[in-house]
């Protein structure tokens, strides 16, 4: 099913996101497709293959759209919703740069088919800061210089928050084991472990 004005929205969305660095402007892209599509006549679809309708929540907001059945959740987030925080590193589940939370658990969004997000809650790096400032884990990464180039950082932080919530951040050894799915080519591992140790007491276990 063609998605009404999908292409236009996508371009608009991405430009605004890059300019403003916020997701406030995304609400337009998250509205469900309405009957207006039929009234407006055939529209070019942003998707090529067979599409499936996906309706889910991302960072607390509802999103509904038709997506190519082949697409990954990572592609859905980045290319359709403009949430480019989660990164495409290897695209094969080997590096952890694409880590997001689905129903509160960390997953590799590159190996998760977008269709699987249907009916679920997804949280990305864009959704963790509170109204009063950064998430404790974000602040801890800054405090400990837990990055250099920053490409892996959104995935590291999402994995780190989950690591604490799971109860797997009780010792440096355990942190290393349960963070091993996130590769940092700059080698900021010492800072990452220190950051998690700092933030852990401020984060509730689930």
């Amino acid at each position: 099913m063609p998605n009404s004005q999908g292409k236009h929205r996508l371009e608009t969305t991405r430009r605004r996101v890059l300019k403003a660095g916020t997701i406030i402007s995304l609400s337009g892209a998250m509205l469900p497709t309405t009957g207006l599509a039929q009234q407006a006549g055939p529209q070019p679809s942003p998707e090529n293959g067979v599409t499936v309708p996906v309706s889910f929540r991302v960072n607390g907001r509802p999103a509904a759209l038709d997506i190519d059945a082949r697409a990954s959740l990572l592609d859905l987030l980045r290319e359709r919703l403009g949430l480019v925080g989660a990164k495409k590193g290897c695209d094969h589940g080997q590096c952890g740069a694409c880590t997001v939370h689905m129903n509160g658990r960390r997953i590799a969004s590159c190996l998760t088919m977008a269709a699987k997000a249907h009916g679920r809650d997804v949280t990305t790096i864009e959704g963790i800061a509170g109204a009063d400032g950064l998430h404790p884990m974000q602040q801890a990464f800054i405090d400990h210089d837990a990055l250099q180039c920053g490409y892996c950082t959104p995935g590291q932080i999402m994995a780190a928050i989950a690591c604490v919530k799971e109860g797997h951040a009780t010792t440096p050894e355990q942190i290393k084991e349960y963070m091993s799915g996130n590769i940092c080519r700059c080698g900021a591992y010492v800072g990452i472990v220190a950051a998690i140790e700092q933030a852990a007491p401020q984060i509730e276990r689930s």
């Binding site: 589940g93 952890g96 880590t99 658990r105 960390r106 997953i107 590799a108 190996l111 998760t112 994995a159 989950a162 690591c163 799971e166 797997h168 349960y178 091993s180 799915g181 996130n182």
Partner: peptide
């Protein structure tokens, strides 16, 4: 086996 992300999937 794998990573916690993959074991969650």
């Amino acid at each position: 086996a794998a990573s916690q992300q993959l074991r969650n999937m």
